[in-house]
Design a protein around this nucleic acid. Structure first.
Lengths: 118, 118
DNA sequence: TTAGTTACTTTCAAATAACAAGTAACAAGG
DNA sequence: CCTTGTTACTTGTTATTTGAAAGTAACTAA
């Protein structure tokens, strides 16, 4: 079973998992304590529901996220980061540092955490 | 002039610039000393030429890259990272660290540097 | 019975990506 | 000169992905 990736470059491999406009925002929400489909949808960027469903599936397949039943009747699921997922916090923080330095009017992490809670 | 971004979240803003499968590979090549259109095309992931042209334009517009004439007759250009671009090395390194830990058979930075030189 | 909630899936036009081929501006060789 | 080669793109053309809206399933509560 040959794993089919573009190249053995770690950057390319990360981009095969996270290289799009939405995936890392879901990871951000998970890191900030959001766990349900609805909660992700309510974030300020307003991710379309079909894209969200697709990205959650992909993250689960990649072992970044696990899905757990949190309620029977009606059956409802919640999403959690695995250790692999949790360690993306370092990648995210380096991005935040860069953005705060070079992109005007971006909030810092604390402010964002506040925004997502409301 | 209201800047039109999805949200003031630094993660979202970074993804508006780098959130796709190719852009950060061009930045990687630049960090590793590649500077010409042809050199980027020769990297192992084989970026299509129209996508490369588009990404270089976008990176220039975002102030991550500058284009300089390195030869008149025929006129030829080379691309270089600005300070803003160079500081993406920290983001890239955090990705490499994560990939080396969680994605099997990814090379380390030194090996990749070697691959890109040949 | 009707409305509301959550977690999706489906539909479809529009945008984007991938692949192949073409072009411009020269240089070098025969 | 004329052809071949090189670099840096651009232009089609087709394939895939996206995004907005609407629909569905399985309930709960009024």
């Amino acid at each position: 079973m040959t794993e089919c990736k573009r190249s053995p470059c770690p950057v390319a491999c990360v981009l095969d998992i996270l290289g799009d406009k939405w995936t890392l925002l879901v990871v951000r929400d998970l890191l900030f304590g959001k766990h349900t489909f609805k909660a992700f949808q309510e974030s300020p960027e307003k991710i379309p529901s079909n894209i969200l469903a697709d990205r959650l599936k992909r993250l689960e397949r990649e072992g970044v996220v696990v899905r757990k039943v949190y309620q029977e009747r009606p059956r409802r699921h919640a999403y959690y980061l695995t250790d692999k997922g949790k360690e993306l916090s370092t990648v995210m923080r380096s991005m935040v540092k860069w953005a705060n330095k070079y992109i005007p009017e971006t909030y810092d992490l604390k402010t964002i955490r506040g925004m997502l809670k409301e």
